[in-house]
Design a binder for these strands. Structure first.
Lengths: 339, 339
DNA sequence: AACTAGAGCGAAAACGGTTTCGTGTTGATA
DNA sequence: TATCAACACGAAACCGTTTTCGCTCTAGTT
């Protein structure tokens, strides 16, 4: 077991000072060619690599970014992480992932853990509990300390920082519009409570499309579930009672489950009833029939978030200017609607 | 913007030495009650939190663990990460996630990046390229440096370290056995090339079950795809030519896609043909019909891996004893087979 | 009154780097 | 020969902790 070699070790072996070694390894003009070659050769031979922690302590940059998300076992968040990781890695940053599991307390604890020097900035999506509670002091404390934060997808207006979202309202609007164009008249929405910023926006887009048409909004066609968790009973009852001819769902799972329910009743998709979901994951692709969705471009979102964060981290300027980037959703047409 | 306060700041304000402050905050017996109270009150007031980086440098412990996996947009890996994160967090550790994207080079680069002090140990699953290449020097270098490594799922015998796997052979054996028990006689296997340790083990279990029965192994009923990527054409041709009455697939996607193919041909599942896949993800649960699978218990695997790693990290002892934990797979029966 | 023990605190080294500034040596110049 | 710049290198501070060791009091003992 050969433990890591340090500058001090090299200095001792070569009988020069630590400073000389450090400079020689950085190819400083100050050091003679002879010495530099000697040092560099020795360093290569013994596979010297500077200690990240020491460097971090010195220049107060960790090259780590903290990602705090509610859940990782969800296709959307997974793709975002991938986008963040790819981009961050290309710029020499590592990604520390923390899960809040939709809990306010865990979100707070995780952030405190990381905020004490472990990371240069945060990328996060709020837990549902945090959004329900409306308490963002943990975020404010972090930004007050000068740690940059980028909020994505589940955001709040109460914190001043960079933000990245997709235009959920537009996505829902277009999906609903699609149903209307295809002559559907009883268009249902299966969503969650409004405290989730994304659900709220999607519901708004759905309403807008219907209001602009001559159909108008029928409140009874909107099913609001208390959380993103599946509630099979509620959905079943809803679909049986309302018999819609088109259903927009705020995620894949609600949609795929609903499709199975109506298929069991003998309905034909998309002739009798059409479906569109949110999130372009494996489920949509391999469902039977395949599910049309509003794609959220999670990977892109991750890239953009990481770019904004790292740019801010590396910018010396203390300009207090924050921007919100809005990505366009895309409607992916598959067999769950006519085409 | 109030920047973080340090020991030095407190010492200056209270006109005591840094050592006194440090000791006072740790409730050292050496310091008088008066001073302790004063210091602690001040620290609380200004929300003092020790700098993680400085502590890491001092005691050569980062409380970070590095997780290197091939891909994150796969249900199995996602659940493993969740398991790791939950367990590690409970013990005060953070998780740095790096993706190799099935590339040998990225795996090497990621490990080098983290091995220079950023983490206390690795949990990893080998990239397919690494397994194909059989080059494990990057792992050996890391273990040589005394950094503990836990390998899970995709492992190798050529590196001495702790390992966690599920009994893939047993899983495949039981699944195949199930088909045999149900009177199936033309049992196919859709898998990938043998260089993936898991595929190899699963194929072995499949063969074993058939050899023990009076059916025997028909090599032509085994389809080996070059990678985990879907090859729709190959699967389609295979199923059309062979017309099996049961199919075991090494993942969910192969299985769900196959189910759709045979359904389009008018076959009834599970009467005419049954299916079992590997990985208990959303796809299996919400497929139509729902897919029976060999569950791999990713979250458990993550927990166990994290436990083994952290125990090793925190054990002072330098005992060079490594163990391999084998988790039992479970057969989850759903509608893709008779029951 | 002299000595001693212990309480309470501070100085300094250490972790592994980076960087500023100072210093000794050399050769060229006046 | 005295001066000086340039070259090559080292000393030391610094980042924010922890921890060992030594110092200075004070109070108690004889």
């Amino acid at each position: 077991m050969k433990s890591k070699i340090t500058l001090k070790d090299i200095a001792r072996e070569l009988e020069v000072s630590i400073s000389t070694v450090s400079k020689a390894l950085k190819n400083s003009e100050e050091i003679s060619r002879d010495t530099k070659e000697k040092v560099q050769a020795f360093a290569k031979l013994y596979n010297y690599k500077p200690n990240n922690i020491a460097i971090s302590l010195k220049n107060k940059r960790t090259k780590n970014i903290g990602v705090v998300i509610p859940d990782i076992v969800h296709h959307f968040f997974t793709t975002v992480i991938r986008g963040i990781e790819k981009y961050a890695n290309a710029r020499g940053y590592n990604v520390i992932v923390c899960l809040s599991e939709e809990s306010f307390d865990k979100e707070v604890i995780n952030m405190e853990m990381l905020a004490n020097g472990s990371i240069d900035g945060f990328i996060m999506s709020l837990s549902s509990e945090t959004q329900a509670k409306g308490d963002y002091n943990h975020l404010k404390e972090v930004t007050d300390q000068g740690i940059p934060v980028v909020l994505f997808d589940r955001i709040t207006n109460e914190v001043e920082c960079d933000k990245v979202i997709i235009d959920d309202e537009l996505g829902a609007y277009r999906a609903t519009q699609k149903f209307i164009d295809q002559g559907k008249s009883k268009i249902a929405l299966i969503t969650t409570d409004d405290y989730l910023s994304v659900s709220k926006a999607r519901t708004k887009g759905y309403r807008k499309a219907l209001q602009e048409s001559n159909l108008g909004v029928d409140e009874s066609l909107i099913l609001k579930l208390p959380s993103m968790e599946m509630d099979e009973g509620a959905i079943k009852t809803f679909l049986n009672e309302k018999n819609p001819d088109a259903v927009l769902c705020v995620n894949e799972i609600f949609a795929v489950y609903s499709m199975r329910l109506v298929q069991e009743k003998g309905l034909k998709i998309p002739e009798d009833i059409s479906f569109i979901g949110f999130t372009d994951g494996v489920l949509s692709k391999y469902a039977n029939p395949s599910l049309s969705v509003v794609a959220q471009h999670g990977e892109k979102m991750g890239e953009v978030s990481a770019e904004m964060l790292i740019d801010k981290v590396e910018s010396e300027a203390e300009e207090e200017s924050y921007q919100t980037k809005v990505l366009e959703p895309t409607l992916v047409i598959r067999d769950s609607i006519a085409h």
